[in-house]
Design a protein around this nucleic acid. Structure first.
Lengths: 317, 317
DNA sequence: TTCAAGACTGCAAACAGTTGCACTAAACCT
DNA sequence: AGGTTTAGTGCAACTGTTTGCAGTCTTGAA
């Protein structure tokens, strides 16, 4: 039914090992033999069985990609870029979603472990200790988390957050709210640490919040009560929700309060007012992560972020 | 190094076949033996090797999911739902992106074929003939394409489109533009066929267009020139781009022209004006597709769509 | 002419599981 | 008590490929 290496061998009058070699080590086989085998294989419609190959070589040519929430618009560009990079080197990509559940990260890595050559873990929520334990099971690259012993791709969100707060300060804002992300998020901690270092700005931290529109919407009341004129949100979704929530409370953006987001997702650009935000190099991160994984290099990389000023920020009145 | 079934067998004093059975057919082994094997396996950290299992059984417990563009906001909810459904039955999901290239569909299916138990193909762009050829290689379910010989999940976008045009007609619009999608899209054809059947409305088809914001933006001029008061776009992205393009031409929505989208993506809800649109059951489709695949049932299903009226439509003036 | 070195190719043992068949011992039936 | 079923386990062949080793045949050099 399914045509194997043996069928090809028989049909082309050579031993299976020769057929095997024409596919996995072509230079070891005579040119004439090789083309004969190749044409026979083509005729028969032979495709190497990756599972069988994986069994002997131990390499599956598969990669795993684990994200918190596929439907969060931050991730799809990253997934897309990772997929493209993997495809280019003839790797396939498992994609998995933890639904923001820390425990699911461990479970998924376990489940993947025998089936992939490595996994990239995006914005993990598990503890460093848990991650280090996992790193023993399977090669690993982490995006947006600093972790010793594993390759790391960081987006320099701290720098972006600082730019954002400086931007607000430059406009004349002195009291700024930081609408934080979920607990356990390295990114959220990083943002906070950077934001706190901006001089002449009094920062009020509000959170943790769900990293969603809803989370931002729910935080609107506390932002108003904090008596601030500007806000930096954990991400664009939160910022958009916040703007809507503030609107419901009778405050308009940017007239009454300036809001800046982080991520630069499409919806932010489409939002009214258009969102001032920190652009994150998600595609670059995805691409880089799989490259690191495939080449088995263990490095720590930090990617640049930048501030995109649009219409949701203005001087306080 | 990696612990195998044989290690477990040795350590628990039984034959490998017994170990194998405690995992794949627990009822065939004595309760006492089973728990002993299980605890030993646990201690040793044994995990069944799926590749090896796949080799003998022919079932990989993997599924493939192929979409046109991961970054198109229409797909992530579908991917997420498909992933959840797969996970629930202990399947893993390969996700792949064709970048809107019909040829990539065939290539990816080929590449997946030995490694998955089936693939779900979303909104394919290939010809029916090409798809039927592929269906011989690997079990298949197609979303948003009618195809004999393969399980099919359709979203009844025709019905939705008709509702949309009827909604416009009900508001008093007599001349409506249909801003079509890409060539080869079943959905686009379906929308057109349904829209044309609404009485008392003169339809002008504009397209094909890229299924993106940019595509809608570029079509704005032709929509204006068509002298219509309403427009139905291939999807929300196109609708949003169209609204922006019309704005640049000095036309406001919905005052000068009413626009309705299709898909009900998040960005549409966040857009100003909030988009009137046809809600598509993407999550349900994703879930259903993998269920059909796993249960190997070959059925044709049609999922309901509905119209969501928001702020981008109004009576003509 | 002889020998060594290459270039190809075949052989067979892995890889980590599954599964039909055979066997033993206990339980059941009459 | 004798025969039959049944539960549980072992044996060994098999899945599709890779790969170290060994063998054959050329080729080139001395």
């Amino acid at each position: 039914m399914t045509v194997t290496i043996r069928d090809v061998a028989r049909a082309s009058g050579v031993h299976v090992s020769t057929v095997s070699r024409t596919f996995s080590a072509p230079h070891m086989v005579n040119a004439a033999t090789r083309t004969r085998v190749l044409t026979v294989a083509e005729e028969l419609g032979y495709r190497p069985n990756r599972a069988a190959r994986a069994l002997t070589t131990g390499r599956t040519h598969n990669l795993g990609l684990i994200v918190a929430d596929i439907a969060n618009p931050f991730f799809p560009p990253l997934i897309k870029a990772a997929h493209a990079a993997a495809r280019q080197r003839d790797y396939h990509l498992f994609v998995a979603d933890t639904d923001e559940e820390p425990a699911a990260e461990e479970e998924l890595v376990q489940a993947f472990s025998k089936q992939v050559d490595g996994v990239v873990l995006c914005s993990p929520r598990s503890s460093n200790k848990a991650l280090e334990r996992l790193a023993e099971r399977v090669p690993f690259v982490v995006i947006n988390r600093r972790l010793r012993g594993a390759a790391t791709v960081l987006m320099d969100v701290g720098h972006g957050a600082r730019l954002a707060v400086e931007h607000l300060a430059g406009l004349g804002h002195r009291r700024v709210a930081l609408v934080a992300g979920p607990a356990g998020s390295w990114t959220s901690a990083e943002i906070r640490a950077a934001a706190e270092q901006v001089p002449d700005v009094e920062l009020t931290v509000i959170g943790p919040n769900a990293p969603t529109e809803r989370g931002g919407f729910a935080a609107a009341g506390r932002v108003r009560d904090a008596g601030v004129t500007g806000a930096l949100a954990y991400n664009d979704l939160v910022a958009i929700g916040l703007i809507e929530g503030l609107g419901d409370l009778g405050l308009t953006v940017p007239a009454d309060v300036s809001v800046v987001g982080i991520d630069d997702i499409v919806s932010g650009r489409l939002n009214r007012p258009k969102l001032t935000t920190v652009a994150m190099p998600t595609a670059a991160a995805g691409r880089l992560a799989v490259d690191l994984l495939i080449q088995e290099v263990s490095a720590t990389t930090s990617l640049e972020t930048r501030l995109v000023v649009r219409d949701s920020t203005a001087p306080p009145r």
